[in-house]
Structures are given as structure tokens and as C-alpha cells.
Nucleic acid binder design. Structure first.
Lengths: 129, 129
DNA sequence: GATACTACTATCCTAAAGGATACCGGTATC
DNA sequence: GATACCGGTATCCTTTAGGATAGTAGTATC
């Protein structure tokens, strides 16, 4: 073990950078966390949608939770809420270009996750045999 | 917006691959989730440690929670529990080589997190001014 | 005038994560 | 014989995420 995780994640070994690094990782985890963040980002990936429209797409989400999740995503600048003065008023939610900055992270998360699942399934098999 | 998140994360646009991709991302998030997973991995990064030793390093963790987290990390094959027949018995926890496969993921998470924090701080400043 | 749709908010409830505290069997030390 | 250390487990409690259900203001439709 030459390049330890600590080396990787903390870059240098001072306590301060370590704390910062852990906080940064946690920030990212936090932003993506919760049951609905990912499905919500995906639901909006094919263009702007209205509140009820999203609710119908995600089927099981309650309006309270949807409202909260949308607000969080908006605070993180992943989406923009637009109000149109139609009658009745129309509200749409639309992904920002910045939301695409997650692509690289999501790709890594997906690949590691796929690989990990395979590995764990394999290990369990070996133990049973 | 040419390469949407959907394209990035789902690779193809069929519903099945999308569901799999979301599940894979969520698997990874789940593995790293919780208050203590990261600090624990870091604590073990400089070599094997004993139960009480880890508890002292992390200071605020209770034995119950530490025990649970260690078991989860072991199930995910990030660490190995070794029992030595000394008197009294000695138990050590040690990172596996496989735990290093997280390095790349953690690096992405850290970098995105750092960048995001800067961005959000900046936006808030602009709004106040 | 009754019903329905939109974009939500409000209130209550449940389950799970995590913390506080106490304890356990075994050994070693004073 | 009392106290302390190790590696935990057991029990209770609090906080938080999220769900269930109901309701609201404004408009449109029958």
C-alpha cells in the first residue's frame, strides 16, 4: 500500500486539508442524497417540466416532498424555476447548464457501483459454495 | 444541451439501463453514506488499528455505532477484521487493497465538492451585494 | 353553482440513523 | 479482592427523512 486513500483524498497529510477534503466529499454526497434527487434530475433531463407533470412522472412522490426537493436542487443551481403569467399561471422547472457538471461525478459513481455489485454478488456465491 | 445527464448516466435511453444506472449510483452513495464511513476509512489509512484505538481517534463515536459501521465496511470488503489469540485477545481492523478502488471516486467527489462550495459562496455574495 | 385542475402548504405520523448510558465476560494489575 | 482495560452488546431516546392526508387560492369548465 503506497498511495493510501488518505494520500488520495487528503493530498497532503496535514489535518486541515484532511478535514476540508472530507467536508468536500460530504458536500457532494449531500447534494445527491435522498430518495428523489437522481430520479428528479433524470426526469428533467429531457426538457423543462411543470410541477404536476413531474409528479406524474415520478408517480409515488408526494407534493410536499417534491416541493422540498425542487427547492434544494434550485438552491444548488441545478435547476431554474420559471413562472409564466398565463391563466392559470404556469410554472416550469428546467435543468441549468451547471447541472451537467455532475456528469463526470455520476459516471464515476455509476461505474464503481456496477463493478461493486458484481464483486459482492460473486463473493457471496463463493461463500455459499 | 447535447449530451444530457440522461445520456451520461444512462448511456442508452432505454428504461432498463436508466433504472440500473440509478441503482448503481445509489449503491455507491449508500456505501459511503453515514456520518462515520469517511472518517473511519481515513482513520485506518495509516495502518491497522484496534477497536478502542479507532474509538479514541474518532473521539465522539460510540461503541455501538463504531461496531455497526465496521461491520458494514467489512461486508463491503473495505476492511478485514483480524483476531489474534493473545491474552487478552487482540482485534485489528485493516483496509483491504480493494478499498483503494474508491480513490478515483473519492477524488471526483472531493473535487466537485470543492468547486461547488466556491460557486455557491460566490453566488450568495453576488445576491447580497 | 358545482366540480376540477394547478401549484403548492400544513399537519400528523412512521421508520431509521445515530447518540447516551449501562452493562457483559474475560484478563491483568495493584 | 478491587479496579481497570478490551471488545464489544443491550436498552432507551432523539432527530431527521419521508409518507399520508387534507386543505388553499385562483381559474376554468360543465
Amino acid at each position: 500500500m503506497e498511495a493510501t486513500i488518505e494520500k488520495e483524498i487528503c493530498v497532503t497529510h496535514t489535518k486541515e486539508t484532511c478535514v476540508t477534503a472530507v467536508a468536500a466529499v460530504r458536500d457532494t454526497l449531500y447534494v445527491l442524497n435522498g430518495k428523489w434527487k437522481l430520479p428528479l434530475l433524470l426526469a428533467l433531463a429531457d426538457g423543462p417540466k411543470r410541477f404536476k407533470e413531474i409528479q406524474r412522472d415520478l408517480q409515488e412522490i408526494t407534493p410536499k416532498v417534491l416541493s422540498k426537493e425542487l427547492k434544494e436542487l434550485e438552491l444548488n443551481e441545478f435547476l431554474e424555476r420559471k413562472v409564466f403569467a398565463t391563466t392559470p399561471v404556469t410554472v416550469t422547472y428546467e435543468l441549468t447548464p451547471y447541472s451537467r457538471s455532475l456528469d463526470k461525478v455520476l459516471k464515476e459513481l455509476r461505474e464503481w457501483g456496477l463493478q461493486h455489485r458484481q464483486r459482492i454478488i460473486k463473493s457471496r456465491k463463493n461463500k455459499v459454495e
